[in-house]
């Protein structure tokens, strides 16, 4: 095989999934940069384990927003739903905490089950507002997010809820085979489920079509209201699990934890190649964007002289840069196909 054909092939692979390859290249470049500059401080097992325990919080929320965005909507209530879940579960854990400061064996499965149910209920509420009351998703979820946060505030007066057994936090901060953090496992399970739903099932195909055109979807006999409700429910479940991880990572729950996550997650999802108007986007792009964010942030922390706040600058810059790149590549495409 000669070099030009190889190049062409590479180009073809790159073009087939531009977003994903762009993210892979960015991650690779960053990893190389870190290897050159801070190899010892960055490439440690514990460093990667810490990252893997941190990103599932907003990673899970991003997955939920991704689903909503594929339908042409958005879910701005994820952080509110996550905090409300974690606060309610924190109260439950306080009640379950035994005199010796431990937890009964059933406690952790129980709180997770309840968290999933709560998340589904919050999502259903959003789904109803969007599908039955026809409120634009951005407003409906903004309102419900405010409402969830409000309930958190009203319940806690803005204080942290932390007087529950440390056993919960210890359990989630465990590592499988002393290697893989539990948080990462929870995230991976959800990501695999959503990947499976999107790419292998009828539900996934319908979701993309619904996002492409709700009218055509209705004329094609899709139960659009139900699809929307299901989707916001899954998003709610993702958010609730994110909340449970926050509860473990901070060993407490508070109404204003993770408030920066809302916009950060939207950013991740768009950077991951999900179209804000719906109908387009893949989970692999979003997962890569989540990982990229974490790597950038942790890597930057290895440079004590550089303020960690620069991450926000880089992050916003990257988003705008990618959008501009898309503008040029898509415009080029339009020009060649326009007849």
């Amino acid at each position: 095989m000669t070099t030009p054909t190889l190049l062409k092939k590479a180009q073809g692979i790159y073009r087939s999934d531009r977003h994903v390859w762009r993210l892979i290249i960015m991650i690779a470049l960053w990893l190389i940069f870190m290897a050159i500059t801070r190899f010892r401080k960055f490439y440690t097992l514990i460093n990667f384990q810490t990252m893997a325990a941190q990103f599932p919080e907003f990673g899970l929320m991003s997955l939920g927003i991704m689903l909503a965005m594929i339908t042409g909507g958005i879910d701005l209530s994820v952080v509110g739903a996550a905090n409300l879940t974690s606060i309610l579960m924190a109260f439950l854990l306080i009640n379950l905490t035994t005199a010796t400061g431990g937890l009964p064996a059933y406690a952790i499965p129980l709180v997770f089950l309840l968290a999933i149910l709560l998340g589904a209920a919050f999502g259903l509420f959003n789904g109803l507002l969007v599908s039955k009351f026809h409120i634009p998703p951005i407003l409906a979820t903004m309102g419900s997010g405010e409402l969830f946060t409000g309930i958190c505030m009203a319940m806690t007066n803005g204080n942290a809820i932390s007087k529950f057994s440390r056993a919960y936090s210890r359990a989630i901060n465990n590592r499988l085979f002393d290697m893989i953090p539990v948080q990462l496992i929870i995230f991976t399970v959800m990501a695999v489920i959503i990947w499976f739903l999107l790419s292998k099932t009828a539900y996934g195909s319908k979701l993309y079509l619904l996002g492409t055109s709700p009218t055509v979807a209705r004329f094609s006999g899709l139960k659009t209201d139900r699809l929307l409700m299901q989707t916001y429910m899954i998003s709610g479940i993702c958010a609730a699990l994110g909340g449970m991880i926050m509860l473990a990572n901070y060993n407490s729950a508070r109404a204003d934890y993770g408030t920066v996550y809302t916009l950060q997650c939207v950013l991740i999802v768009v950077l991951g190649g999900v179209s804000p108007v719906g109908g387009r986007g893949k989970i692999n792009g979003v997962v890569l964007a989540i990982i990229l964010l974490r790597l950038l942030e942790t890597g930057l922390n290895r440079f004590p002289k550089i303020s960690s706040y620069y991450i926000s600058l880089i992050w916003g810059g990257v988003l705008i840069l990618v959008m501009v790149l898309n503008y040029f590549t898509e415009n080029a495409k339009v020009k060649t196909t326009n007849t």
């Binding site: 916009l263 768009v270 706040y309 926000s312 600058l313 916003g316």
Partner: peptide, 9 residues
């Protein structure tokens, strides 16, 4: 969204 991140940064 991006620019607010940049401004904050």
């Amino acid at each position: 969204l991006g620019s607010s991140s940049v401004f904050k940064g």
